[in-house]
């Protein structure tokens, strides 16, 4: 940016250089970031070393929260539930999303309508989604009877069965995000240059060979991107577990975010809650850094 010569006449009384204005324009965002992002982040680490119920002053207990956490069966359960939820959801989304993306790439008619149909679930509120699906899973009058009864299963109590509740949440998660991820795959597919396929065709490659040796290897970055983003997002899924099953039955859907919420805001163990948050932060951060290492900044655009 060329600096303005000082001899230029100005109308303003304040003589600020453009670079000063740049700083002024940045200030609100900077202040906001410090107050609502960095301060809470550092405070999280600090608070996780305390015991605090909001009523009495916080007491320093060092690493006790972490020690307790690692011996807390409920936390072990939450981690296990969240990992199973995130991995199953991601497995379905990466594979089904790929299949769907490939089909979208072949489709010639009605693409706009279909794209809208697949995409709509991902714009809806998670609360609305949870409410709709709670009724869908109703054992005798829900929409699920439409699919389970022809198969000979009656009165399936999806949300009250500790073996079916988590799969039910996985179904909801996959349904919600499938359209979104398939469109990411589609974008990846469309970025593959047409010449690659033409060259393969001239060499006598069959369609499945093109798919196997050109499409899939070139889609690897997209695949990894979808997998990582899906894992990160799945770990943070809260509303369905809270509103559809309330963590139950018997803790089988007590995902980490719900465990964190209960610990902090229902049992008022602020320090213990933040310790959970810190661990969650470290895990997700590691995954994110992995993603950045694999793709560099600003991937997925």
């Amino acid at each position: 940016m060329p600096k303005r010569p000082d001899s230029t006449p100005r109308r303003k009384k304040f003589h600020l250089k453009p670079s000063h204005w740049g700083i002024i324009f940045l200030l609100p965002a900077l202040a906001h970031m410090l107050i609502f992002k960095f301060h809470p982040l550092f405070n999280a680490f600090y608070m996780s070393l305390h015991e605090w119920d909001l009523l009495n002053p916080p007491t320093w207990i060092g690493l006790d929260n972490y020690v307790r956490l690692f011996n807390d069966a409920r936390f072990h359960n939450s981690v296990s539930v969240s990992v199973r939820y995130a991995l199953s959801t991601t497995l379905c989304l990466t594979t089904l999303g790929l299949a769907l993306g490939l089909m979208f790439n072949r489709a010639t008619r009605g693409i706009a309508v279909m794209r809208a149909a697949y995409f709509v679930p991902s714009i809806m509120s998670t609360v609305v989604i949870a409410i709709i699906w709670r009724f869908i899973f109703h054992p005798s009058f829900g929409l699920q009877t439409f699919f389970t009864e022809p198969l000979g299963y009656f009165n399936v109590r999806w949300l009250n069965n500790s073996r079916l509740a988590l799969p039910a949440l996985v179904i909801v998660g996959v349904w919600r995000h499938l359209g979104y991820y398939s469109l990411i795959y589609l974008a990846g597919l469309q970025a593959i240059p047409e010449e690659q396929y033409e060259a393969a065709k001239i060499d006598g490659a069959r369609p499945y060979q093109s798919l196997l040796y050109i499409t899939l290897p070139l889609l690897r970055p997209t695949f990894l991107f979808v997998a990582i983003v899906s894992v990160i997002n799945s770990f943070q899924s809260f509303a369905p577990a809270q509103l559809m099953t309330d963590g139950g039955p018997a803790g089988s859907t007590l995902v980490i975010p719900l465990f964190l919420y209960r610990t902090a805001f229902q049992n008022l163990h602020m320090g213990y809650g933040t310790a959970i948050a810190v661990i969650m932060f470290l895990v997700l951060m590691t995954i994110t850094l992995l993603q950045l290492k694999l793709f560099g900044m600003g991937s997925g655009q």
């Binding site: 301060h39 405070n43 933040t274 932060f281």
Partner: peptide, 20 residues
């Protein structure tokens, strides 16, 4: 730094943000 804050999951700072 701004880009870095994009990586902070909201739930990680939920409790301290509530306290603020």
């Amino acid at each position: 730094l701004v880009l870095g804050t994009m990586m902070i999951p909201f739930q990680a700072i939920l409790i301290p943000l509530f306290l603020t």
